[in-house]
Design a protein around this nucleic acid. Structure first.
Lengths: 232, 232
DNA sequence: ACAAAAGTGTTTAGATTACACCCATGA
DNA sequence: TCATGGGTGTAATCTAAACACTTTTGT
């Protein structure tokens, strides 16, 4: 302990890049910061790491507070530790990224926090280095989408292959050939065709699918854009 | 500031997974911890983040101290923040991983720190969660090797294709077909054949290669093991 | 000349891509 | 019946992988 005492201690915060999917767009949960510095400017949802919790736990806590959801996908992005990143005091921040199903989240919670879902195509300026946190999180999402179908985290229980494709097009900001995409995805054998159709988009209607219950999801989608492999 | 003051502050450390390549093996720089707790047990090289430095700077500082090298490849791995990971006091640790050319490092420095290069195949037990840090760093190395030839970081200026293959075999712990590996690597067009041969391994001798000077190295090597693509 | 490692070529199987075409349905 | 998106089939192209073969050189 003696040896440790000569070293400084720092505030440690977590900031969450909370991403969801709605109306064919990836959206980010932001709120106008409620205190100085930079009061009123857009900020990620964050908070300080307390004595008896890990950073992961702190991030979960914040997620619960702001969306009402538990047990959702959460992953470290990076640490941000420039001495002056927060002009008020030295705060070392650990960025997290979360994927949530907007259809499940608690709108009450979100409204209470004054938070909004903002489409990532029209992102406003964010405080501090939050823009960079977002960029890194988006890159992580693209990576993740590259080796696992992230429909489970972002789409409703039932969805059409077309909806899944639109999700992937939103994530990668490019188009995929409808026929090839469908074949590729179905070749993994992780989706189950239902007998129900979504008739809102066309006369013919598109069949709904859902993830098979027992699948330990391990899928590889290559980097070049979209080349996929089933791993286990 | 008022708002921040109600929150606790924590010691923040960096721990470096310093990897090198020698004698056809990936090696990790470790030292027997010189103070309690766990005095004498194997530990990564680390230190505390000071007032006026970022964590990246702290990691660079530690690297300089222990290997004598500057400007070397260094990347964040993850944060470790379990409240009791260090039994002595709460320390939040940011793990880094570094790749260094063992042929360049300062042996004096290493010896002064009582550090040793340990082949990763025969790793001893490490203190705290250092084993986990190492595992994550190794995974990162494999990822990195998957999209960029990391010969620059780990091999001497000049090397043979066979040496590069051995490096990849050490990183991925599997063998690659010599012919296919050579063709793949050379197809990137980032290596320059020299007129000198390494005659130590065979009568015929293998030509040395070096990285072309002007290359902004962007290579993709797929995940399935070894499928590669030139990106730009 | 021959052994042994360096380096080249060839063949096959599988994946990716582009795109033509058929299908089901409500208006 | 026809327009529209949903869904299937196929041929051309590219890539990975296995492995046979040729080259170079010291002894």
């Amino acid at each position: 302990m003696e040896l440790y005492k000569i070293h400084p201690r720092h505030y440690v915060a977590v900031d969450c890049v909370i991403l969801g999917y709605q109306d064919d767009e990836i959206k980010l949960l932001l709120y106008p910061r409620s205190f100085e510095p930079h009061k009123g400017e857009w900020s990620l949802l964050g908070g300080f790491v307390q004595e008896n919790e890990s950073a992961d736990e702190a991030a979960s806590r914040i997620l619960k507070q702001t969306t009402g959801l538990e047990q959702i996908f959460l992953e470290q992005v990076a640490s941000f530790s420039e001495p002056n990143r927060d002009p008020e005091a030295r705060v070392i921040s650990l960025a997290y990224f979360a994927l949530i199903r907007i259809d499940l989240h608690d709108e009450e919670c979100v409204r209470e926090n004054g938070a909004y879902w903002i489409p990532i195509r029209k992102l406003p300026n964010l405080i501090f280095d939050h823009q960079e946190m977002f960029k890194k999180a988006l890159k992580k999402l693209q990576q993740k989408a590259g080796y696992s179908l992230c429909g489970r985290e972002l789409l409703p229980e039932m969805f059409t292959i077309i909806q899944l494709r639109k999700l992937y097009e939103a994530i990668f900001q490019r188009e995929f050939d409808p026929g090839n995409f469908r074949k590729k995805i179905l070749s993994f054998g992780v989706l189950e065709k239902l007998s129900v159709k979504d008739a809102t988009e066309s006369r013919k209607g598109a069949f709904y699918y859902q993830f098979k219950k027992d699948i330990t999801e391990k899928i590889l989608i290559g980097s070049s854009g979209f080349s996929v492999k089933l791993n286990v």
